[in-house]
Amino acid sequence: MNIFRLAGDMTHLMSVLVLLLKIHTIKSCAGISLKTQELYALVFATRYLDIFTDFISVYNTIMKLIFLGSSFSIVWYMRRHKLVRRSYDKEQDTFRHFFLVLPCLLLALVMNEKFTFKEVMWAFSLYLEAVAILPQLVLLQRTKNIDNLTGQYVFLLGAYRAFYIFNWIYRYFTEPHYVHWITWISGLVQTLLYADFFYYYFNSWKNNVKLHLPA
């Protein structure tokens, strides 16, 4: 465990918890894409298939449980909670899961480290995580005005991505045989998707104005 990895995990954890706390306290999910949240729940469910079979560390197991629990809780709130569900921008959040899930699944069947169910699902989860933010970014573009918490949520997710890249670079130079093309390329794609959002986020922060995205 290096400092970049820890910082990445912590910002990732904060992003999910900030969102869950927001939904729980203000009983609103305005501006949040249910499609993205469902995709993240699917990402965690398919990546952590090893949770009960391979023990890595207490830290690892606890983090996995928190990510699974919080992502499914968010989906539950947005779909089932009678107040929260009313604030959901259903008409604006029109991105189809199918268009992201199917290509990722096909890619995982072709590009994987081993052709076993667990390995294919693991590769699928990485490909899907890379693009799962797209429905959220589309929703941000459409609704234009972004409240602070939604902005912070995407900002924390972006920070998590950046720290993970530093973590890979660090591990590449410090650990022998640490080469993971699937993780790196999908991680890089994912980070690039945030670059555009970050550009506007920093501009609005620098000029001290409310974040607005161009059409």
Binding site: R5, I56, S57, N60, V179, H180, T183
Partner: peptide
Amino acid sequence: PQNNDKKDEL
């Protein structure tokens, strides 16, 4: 060599 350490990341 085969890596077994990849799944220590979240």
